[in-house]
Write a protein that binds this DNA or RNA. Structure first.
Lengths: 200, 200
DNA sequence: GTCTATATACAGATAGAC
DNA sequence: GTCTATCTGTATATAGAC
C-alpha cells in the first residue's frame, strides 16, 4: 500500500488536460509522457494502448459526475440540484470558451471513431439520465423532452461560447435556462393544483 | 471554359462527405482520392495541402448557407425565414444522428487546431449573424442573446441526437424552439403596443 | 518497475516520367 | 494535366537492459 507510484495518476491528469486542449488524436503519447514527466517507454507499463488512456479519462470523468451529483443529493429540492448542474459549466466557462466543453468536444471526436460510440457518449448519457430523473422527481408528466432540452441548452451554449471565445455566453444562456426551468416548474404546479389525477 | 476537368469538384464532394463521417484528421488524402476516383498524386495538382482541402470544404459550406439564406428572403416575415433555418437540421436529421452536425462537429475539431480558429468558426458565425439579423428585423430590443439561444438550441439538439442516435430528438427540440420563437414574438408585440418609446 | 533504443506502420508531400 | 513511385517525418508500440 505504501510507496505505490503516482505515475499513473500523473499520466491520467496530463492526458485529461491535453486531450481537452488539443483533442484526442492530436495529443501524442509523447506529449502526455512529457507533461507528466514520465519517460515515453514507461507509459506502456500503465496503459496498454492509447485507446486505454482515453477510456480511463472518460470513465474518470463519468465517475466524477456521479460523485458530484451524489453530493447534490443534500438538496431536497430537485430544482436546487439542477441549479448545481448549471453551475458546473459556469465555473469553467473560461476553459470552455478556450477549448470547448470537455465532455461534448470529446464526444464528437470519439463518436466518429469506429467501435468507440459507447465510450464516446458515456459521460453525457450519465448526465442526461440524471437530469431526466430530476424532472421526474419534480412530477413532470413528460420528463424526457425536458431533460433533453436542459442538457442540449448547455451543450449548445458551450459550443457557442467556444465559437465566440466568450465565457459570458455561458452565463447569459444559463440565466435563460434558469428562467425556463422556473416556468416549467410553475406550469407543473398549476396543473397539479387543478388536476385531481395528479400524484398525492 | 471547355473541357475543364471535374476532378476538383469530385475531390471536394468526397472530402465533404468523408470529413463529416470520419472527421478531418481521420480522413486521409488516400481516402479522399479513392472515393473521388482520382489517383493520390493527382490530388496535389488541385490542392497544395490537406489544410487547403478542409478550407475549401468550410468555405463551400459557408457559401452554401449564404445562398440558401438568400433564397429565404422571399419570405417577408423574419419568423418564416427562421422557420426555414430550423428546417435545415430536420431535413438531415438522420445524418446528424449518425455523424453529428456537419458544421458543429467540424468546428469543434478545427478549433483545437493551431492557427485554424477563424476557419473553424466561419460557417457558424455566418449563421449566427444571419439569425441575429432576423431578430433585429423583428424589432427585438436585444437580438443578440435571442439569436445565440436560437443557434445554441439547434446545436445542442444535434449533439444530443448524435449521442442518442435518434433523429427524433431534432424534431422534438425544433418544436420546442418554434414555440419559444412564438412567445418571443408575442412578448415583443405586447411590449411595443404599450411602449411609446418604441420604433414607428 | 523503470527507461533507452528501436521496430513498424502510415500519412503527407514530392519527383519526375508521360 | 495526369499518374507512379518514393521520400520523409512522425506516432504507436515493442524489445530488452537495468
Amino acid at each position: 500500500m505504501p510507496p505505490k507510484s503516482n505515475k499513473r495518476a500523473k499520466l491520467l491528469k496530463a492526458a485529461r488536460k491535453l486531450i481537452h486542449r488539443q483533442g484526442f488524436q492530436s495529443t501524442t503519447l509523447a506529449d502526455i509522457a512529457t507533461a507528466a514527466d514520465v519517460p515515453l517507454g514507461n507509459v506502456y507499463y500503465y496503459f496498454k494502448t492509447k485507446d486505454d488512456i482515453v477510456r480511463a479519462v472518460v470513465e474518470e470523468r463519468t465517475q466524477r459526475f456521479v460523485d458530484l451529483s451524489g453530493q447534490w443529493e443534500q438538496h431536497h429540492d430537485p430544482v436546487e440540484r439542477l441549479k448545481c448542474f448549471i453551475q458546473m459549466p459556469i465555473t469553467i466557462s473560461r476553459s470552455i470558451a478556450d477549448h470547448g466543453c470537455p465532455v461534448g468536444s470529446l464526444l464528437q471526436e470519439l463518436s466518429k471513431k469506429p467501435d468507440s460510440s459507447d465510450l464516446a457518449t458515456q459521460t453525457l448519457q450519465a448526465q442526461l439520465n440524471w437530469v431526466i430523473e430530476q424532472f421526474h422527481q419534480l412530477g413532470c408528466d413528460d420528463p424526457e423532452p425536458l431533460g433533453r432540452h436542459f442538457v442540449a441548452s448547455l451543450q449548445g451554449a458551450s459550443l457557442l461560447a467556444n465559437t465566440l471565445n466568450q465565457p459570458s455566453v455561458i452565463i447569459e444562456q444559463s440565466e435563460q435556462l434558469i428562467q425556463w426551468l422556473h416556468t416549467v416548474v410553475d406550469n407543473r404546479l398549476s396543473i397539479k393544483v387543478g388536476d385531481a389525477t395528479g400524484p398525492e
